[in-house]
Design a protein around this nucleic acid. Structure first.
Lengths: 242, 242
DNA sequence: CAGAATCCCATTCGATACTG
DNA sequence: CAGTATCGAATGGGATTCTG
């Protein structure tokens, strides 16, 4: 395959052959190919940030603490080159552009979430640490308790996380989360950050306590919200390495 | 900056906070955490190579074309530190050591395979390119056609891929692959490399043609083998970016 | 064989400044 | 806001050598 090396100087002639479509690992099968696409630092998190709909450059940057403009630009270009996302010009009124996953890009959701679910079972993982808004929203998808979800009544929950709003619906036991307005929901949960929401969903603390201590605000049907947060739970930890 | 330094490196104050548990991305939720564990170059492929059982250092190295001893050593150490795998001393007779996934490590299989399945749907992916033995074996797990598998008779297939042997069984519609001897199988397929096997499984060429042209050798019940290769198929490609 | 230790360049990243 | 340009720093990792 692409194992050609040392053209002249004997060593370091061609240090890294990255970026030539399909030759990072010299292994063309699925997983290696996926890693060529999503395996660079930040790439997968960029994709996850777009899972709930198109976003602007600066929004992405704000959601990915630590990423530089340079790297974000590079990742977006590379991912667009692979057909994972597209750059779109918004119509004239809003003279701005957004990045949006392609149909195929959206299909990465299951794989990405599955990774997260796996990692969450590590004894070394502390789910109460600070998390981004997109990550907590994603996590709900994988942390559903099937039995609870099956018998859950339809509901629409508004989530306000800092400055972002999500609309979460349960319909016939199907979970759906999207960015959007929270008006018209059965209940609304406002949280100062994703961490507080994580505590509500995955912690053992009752909602009322979080309202008192963590800045949570409940509006609308409280009972519905109580029921909602019980639809999710963390998978059991594994006792590894011992 | 901090003054603490390593016992040997002399410098390396602390420019990047990597490697300190939980701070690559400043995001503690599942996916980011998974990327801290498996997101470094080669890490996920190392794990996949161990999916079919414990392996020695040199076997791993041989299976991962392009990885250097240094990098493999580093990855194994890091992964062991996270509790993904363990280094084990084999009993005296064989004075050698092997690396084996922990219980939790084995659980990454679904996520890794899901990634591969997703990537294989890219129009830019050519499944006929050279692949490693472990990757083709892994791929079979995700490329099962449920309807065919449901009505498949029990069978044991031996696979010889170059120097490696796998034993693949279908029992009550359940697929299982493991490293092991091929003796006592209903049929045996010998292929010079994984690429030939990929052609048999996912290509449209009949087995007979591959025997003539690609060095495949069929032993035992040919009809069983014909049926076997039809249990797998690639997921449909996506017409992305168009 | 299994890996530790060295050497050392190129890639990559982050910070800053700049531009349309 | 949405990037681009430039620069210095350090990390990664390939090749090589050495050891038990």
């Amino acid at each position: 395959m692409k194992l050609q090396k040392e053209t002249k100087t004997g060593r370091s002639a061609e240090p890294n052959r990255r970026k030539e479509h399909g030759s990072w690992y010299g292994d063309a099968c699925g997983t290696a190919f996926a890693l060529e696409i999503l395996g660079e630092r930040w790439s997968m998190l960029v994709v996850r940030e777009l899972m709930f709909g198109p976003r602007r450059f600066s929004d992405l940057r704000a959601s990915l603490p630590g990423i530089s403009a340079k790297v974000l630009t590079e990742r977006l270009e590379t991912l667009a080159g692979w057909g994972v996302l597209e750059k779109k010009q918004l119509p004239p009124p809003a003279a701005t552009q957004v990045y949006e996953l392609t149909e195929w890009g959206y299909m990465a959701e299951r794989a990405i979430n599955e990774l997260g679910r796996w990692a969450a079972r590590s004894p070394l993982h502390n789910p109460m640490l600070p998390v981004s808004n997109a990550s907590i929203m994603s996590s709900m998808k994988t942390m559903q308790v099937p039995e609870h979800m099956a018998e859950a009544p339809d509901m629409a929950i508004g989530m306000e996380l800092g400055a972002e709003q999500f609309r979460v619906t349960v319909t016939d036991g199907q979970f759906l989360a999207e960015r959007g307005v929270i008006e018209g929901c059965d209940a609304v949960l406002r949280a100062p950050d994703a961490r507080s929401l994580a505590a509500a969903l995955y912690g053992d603390v009752p909602l009322a306590a979080l309202e008192a201590g963590a800045g949570l605000v409940v509006e609308g049907e409280r009972a519905t919200l109580e029921r909602f947060v019980n639809l999710f739970d963390l998978p059991p930890k594994i006792g590894c390495a011992g």
